[in-house]
Design a binder for these strands. Structure first.
Lengths: 122, 122
DNA sequence: AATTTATATAAGTTATAGCTTATATAATCC
DNA sequence: GGATTATATAAGCTATAACTTATATAAATT
């Protein structure tokens, strides 16, 4: 879960890709239309679209020699929700955080207690 | 808006920082506690905390020689909402996208029309 | 005052991401 | 079937981000 979330956040955390996503929310666009609209090179667009596609944010539809991209249905609900869901999730049920949770619980009572605990605050 | 959103998404799109955010949702923690919990070096944690702080995701409270970090009140609502808000916003009202919007509207009718429009699809 | 503790920052290195240029593929048009 | 159009991918370069090691600062302890 954390892995997929990271992929989505990384994909969206780039200005050109944020623009593409917003433009695709207006309507489906092919690569050459995006090229004209954004005024940047075609390989650059294709590369960004690949990142967005791998993150599950956009989907592709081929028609003749064109590739049309549009928002994957999951975007408006799913991708936003996935972060909210991560924050809402019970921390004990996130496998990626299990070692940290264990250490957090034992912060005060075992050999993992660290130097900063030797001078506890009031 | 797009700039601030990008900063937040970049800050969250990193596994260690995602973990820190989740841990801080449990309770406020000082740097040395995070060090013990995450098992990574102190400078690495301080650096990640700086990124999160600059993005407005966490806030700092100094007590004696410690620095305690906690989620900024805006996180659960604000940061998630900001992406939703970006997607909900009227595209014409996003200044960063005004050149693109202009080109998008004129795709079919002026000199900006590009090669791909010379062979329109059915 | 000297030492220890807690944190921050800076410098240097490595890894990753983004961009450009060039090329490949595949459909369409003449 | 050769040329054009649309897109993808690969190679090389540059910029950015992350990590490590070392050092600075400042409070607390002795």
């Amino acid at each position: 879960m954390i892995q997929q979330l990271e992929t989505v956040l990384k994909a969206l955390g780039e200005p050109t890709r944020l623009k593409i996503v917003k433009l695709l929310s207006v309507r489906e666009l092919c690569v050459c239309e995006l090229e004209a609209v954004l005024g940047i090179s075609q390989p650059r667009i294709s590369q960004h679209l690949r990142v967005l596609k791998e993150a599950g944010i956009v989907k592709e539809r081929k028609e003749r020699q064109r590739s049309f991209y549009s928002l994957a249905g999951t975007l408006k609900t799913g991708e936003i929700a996935s972060f909210a869901e991560y924050m809402r999730a019970e921390i004990a049920q996130l496998p990626e955080l299990s070692p940290e949770v264990a250490r957090l619980q034992n912060l005060d009572c075992n050999e993992a207690v660290r130097k900063c605990k030797n001078s506890p605050l009031p």
